[in-house]
């Protein structure tokens, strides 16, 4: 037997020596500033938000006057009353995340894999990806509103080639809101994808081709699984903020009354109508649903350590 010589050399279970588990006071001391900060500025408002979400009108009839209560029904009310806005939030977030992924993956692949031999081009393209951050988020979104305003050349052209009807416009449509959301969050998708694609070992792709896999199969069986962590962090970094976004869908920017998302309702309830329990209940609901979705998603993708 030719291989008998080292057939049993398989003791490769790398025995990692357990790190010293001495919990020193230094560690606690180092954690202290962070813990205090979180306690003050995250936990306290969160508890306050949950308490507010359960409040009831205090009977005085004055705007913004509420008394402590335990009105769980507030949650039922917001779900029935704001169902369209809730579905907009998650529907738009889903579509915009998928659109951002479809645009960002090839872009990140080009920068991280194809441009590897040209560091100058790589650096330039990365700079271009984050360049929008140098201009205010609000200004950029407003600029899109100008570009696609009702009497803009772009809309007139689309009307002339009959993609839009003579009285159809773009601003205020779900399309425009999703367009804005996709545009604004592309860098958050591209950067995590780039960072994992940049480390992709192209020799594995050559091995795939050598083992009779077509380029498409090589992508599906090798590239995609190896870059899955980047896809997961990219989609999370995009989906979560989009679901809570209220700028793009707002009537002042790309949206209209028919495109309002949860964020827009929270904004108007809090700041305009002073209806604090409803706004709080919606906020808590949004947070809870996102948390559940993310937990489910991360578990399905086998990356529990993200949480």
């Amino acid at each position: 037997m030719a291989f008998a010589a080292f057939g049993h050399g398989g003791g490769s279970g790398a025995a990692s020596t357990a790190a010293p588990t001495k919990k020193s006071k230094v560690a606690l001391f180092l954690l202290l500033p962070g813990l205090i900060y979180l306690g003050l500025f995250f936990l306290t408002p969160l508890i306050s938000l949950i308490v507010t979400s359960l409040e009831v009108p205090d009977g005085s009839g004055a705007m913004g006057s509420y008394a402590y209560g335990f009105a769980i029904e507030n949650y039922g009310k917001v779900v029935t009353e704001f169902w369209p806005q809730i579905s907009h939030s998650f529907g738009y977030a889903l579509i915009a995340t998928i659109a951002a992924l479809l645009i960002s993956y090839p872009l990140a692949y080009f920068i991280g894999v194809k441009a590897r031999r040209f560091p100058l081009i790589q650096g330039l393209m990365l700079t271009l990806v984050i360049a929008p951050f140098f201009i205010s988020f609000l200004l950029r979104t407003f600029a899109w509103k100008q570009i696609f305003s009702n009497d803009s050349a772009a809309v007139t052209f689309l009307q002339q080639i009959h993609i839009l009807g003579p009285h159809d416009y773009l601003v205020g449509t779900p399309f425009m809101v999703i367009f804005g959301l996709t545009y604004n969050f592309i860098p958050f998708m591209t950067l995590p994808l780039y960072s994992i694609l940049e480390r992709l070992d192209v020799r594995l792709l050559e091995a795939g081709a050598d083992l009779y896999a077509t380029p498409a199969t090589t992508f599906r069986k090798i590239t995609l699984p190896l870059t899955a962590p980047g896809i997961i962090s990219g989609t999370l970094l995009t989906f979560i903020p989009i679901a809570g976004d209220y700028v793009n869908a707002s009537g002042d920017f790309l949206g209209g009354t028919k495109t309002a998302m949860i964020g827009n309702v929270v904004e108007s309830r809090f700041l305009v109508l002073n209806d604090y329990p409803t706004a709080s209940a919606l906020s808590v609901l949004l947070m809870g649903v996102i948390l559940l979705l993310v937990a489910f998603y991360a578990k399905r993708s086998g990356t529990e350590d993200l949480l």
Binding site: D201, R203, L204, E206, A207, G208, D210, L211, I222, P225, L226
Partner: peptide, 13 residues
């Protein structure tokens, strides 16, 4: 043709 690569190029996943 099949190749035994210098780096082995085994699929880690």
């Amino acid at each position: 043709v099949n190749t035994v690569f210098q780096s082995y190029a085994l699929f880690p996943h």
